[in-house]
Design a binder for these strands. Sequence first.
DNA 1: GTCTATATTGTGATAGAC
DNA 2: GTCTATCACAATATAGAC
Lengths: 222, 222
Amino acid sequence: MSKTPASKARRPAQRADGETEQRILEAARRVFIRRGTAGARMQEIAAEAGVNQALLHYYFRSKDRLSGAVFIQLASRLFPTLARILGGELPLEAKIDALVATYLDTFTQHPFLPGYLLSEMHHNPERVAKLLATATGGDPHQLLVPVFATLAKQIKQQVRAKRMRPIPPQQFVVNLISLCIFPFAARPMLSLVLGLDDARFAALIEERKTHLPEFFRNALRP
Amino acid sequence: MSKTPASKARRPAQRADGETEQRILEAARRVFIRRGTAGARMQEIAAEAGVNQALLHYYFRSKDRLSGAVFIQLASRLFPTLARILGGELPLEAKIDALVATYLDTFTQHPFLPGYLLSEMHHNPERVAKLLATATGGDPHQLLVPVFATLAKQIKQQVRAKRMRPIPPQQFVVNLISLCIFPFAARPMLSLVLGLDDARFAALIEERKTHLPEFFRNALRP
DNA sequence: GTCTATATTGTGATAGAC
DNA sequence: GTCTATCACAATATAGAC
């Protein structure tokens, strides 16, 4: 993606190869996550990277390209995980366990990622298209649609003993990611409404790691 | 909140009382919802309201105050509903039905509200405090905390017949609002990943109105 | 590659006529 | 109350020395 300018012959740089570009990218990541694309300032990113503002343009040409690169990079990590786990060979309950564990761990380590991503997708929906093209290498919704058949079969198996309607696989997937992502995205609101400090919020998430799989098991196997 | 400048004696206005202020507020609402606070431009709001940019400052003094007013107004509609339904006298399943129906209807009418609100809370968490003060008229988390005792009792009743652990009421509430709000906030992503056009997305939500209560019933009454 | 200017435009906000 | 004109500064982007 990022075309590092040609550094041909003689020794010009003061830093190791690609180090500066990386530092800028990491700084941009932090700033865009907390300020959003529109609210972020190139100057703040430069300061956070410990370089001059001009270098940002040297490496990334424009704010639009830089913010685009950050968004694609952060967002494209999440989709393959989803497709890999849900499309895999595990039994349904193990898929739920794996997905809940993976996502809750990821977001515990990067608590502001969900808020940032939802915010960006809301205000720049056109970037979502580019994202999926990157993540899947072509056709957008060939990422998840193929796994629905398998999921539907697994759900039907799970509830076959009962007079219960099987959950449509789309709703199942939407529920799963809603329950994993939303609490982080809505953290400011939840913390205040539920009266949670940082420790209590962490405890809520920790409890959720066992609660969510149990919640789904009950919903699926009555 | 908005202190309309004193229009004392003689006939100065060309429009009816408060009409202009309202038009500005409505225009601001639309623009802030689609651009976000940081991305919105006063000029765009003025154009959308059909007035001059100076009038915005006349009525609301600054962009910060205007965006704050919009946020408080939009967000404070949602919390009383939650407290009223969950804290009411209905049996648990009826509470679930009422909340799902209310929220899904509201967001169907205002599909971009969740994305806007989450985005704002993420990038301006300090406003959440002011919001809860407004919505509750004082103590922040006295809004929901009092209803947890009742909810816990209802949940325990619901699952008493089985060897099933009762769901902690906090998790229950988080699940409920996650499942209602998230699909709207993540609509751009869901639409692409699931391959939904507008009609199919609407159908997904429609299906959800019956699916979610059923999902909870199964999870609570195995 | 990295820096210090600087160009240039965007944007919130105010002054003052009507 | 509403407008036009304008100010002051913020912010992206570029030029050019080192």
